[in-house]
Amino acid sequence: MLTLQAEFTRVLELFQLPFMQRALMGGVLTGLMGGLLGSFVILRQLSFFSDALGHSALLGISLGFLLGFDPTWGLLPFAVLFALCVTYFLEHTHLWTDALLNVIYSSSLAIGVILLSFREGYRGGITNLLFGDILAVQGTDLVFSALLLLTCVAFIGLTLRSQILLTLNEPMAIARGVSASVQRTTFIVLLSLVVGISIKAIGVLLISAFVVIPACAARLLSRRFTHYIGLSAGLGAFSAVVGMLVSALFDLPSGPSIVTVQLAFFLGAILMTKIRAY
């Protein structure tokens, strides 16, 4: 009992530290953004898209190092450009989406690692890129994430009905005057910015989990679209809080801890649907 109390005090003291508070805020913001956009990503079968964006980020960061600009900020225009190019390829080739995305993300990863190998002494840093370091989140990162979250909320909120109809049936939406290409492109640009800004904290390999897992769990628990979107964003944020606590309690890496908590919620959602069915 005493040990438990001591552990609790230790975790509380840990969260008094500014870098832990920034990490917690960063996790919550990423969870909210990932969950919000992720709710549409999985229904539009774009899950691999966020994965491809994450992997391509490595290429963007490598290019940033070689060309001599800040890799974090240089990554964002690269991610947007990359996303638009991928969208163009998806719409103008007759290949399967998952196959084309696989070609893109594996080749981006390969070229990115080769480019990084030219930079002396950076090989150790590749682990940070792959898995991220949420404890290294800075105040400017948080400000940018908060602004991006506001933009995402405003976009989804103001175009909610159009987004739902587009997800449900694109021809029906176009027949009602929705500009499908404008809406789709705006969504993809926002998604690429969310992935780009979250790479530093979460890493190339785990970023797609933030977009996909909370949305899948929310889908299993929802019967209405509006509840589903809110639940997906809420689960994203809640997983980040619980994941950070678990990470502090057991001294585990933060990003993977959050993803493991997301998985626990997903398994819990499966269990709940099974119980409901009986």
């Binding site: 103001l158 909610l160 009905r161 109809l165 449900l168 209405r224 679209f225």
Partner: peptide, 30 residues
């Protein structure tokens, strides 16, 4: 359209679907 619900996994209730027919689908608060 012919196949209106292309993916039956999309979570939408009957009243939400009917509501989409009412909306003007221009930027507005939900």
């Amino acid at each position: 359209p012919q196949n209106f619900l292309l993916d039956r996994r999309i979570p939408i209730s009957a009243s939400e679907l009917v509501g989409l027919g009412w909306d003007r689908l221009r930027p507005q608060l939900p």
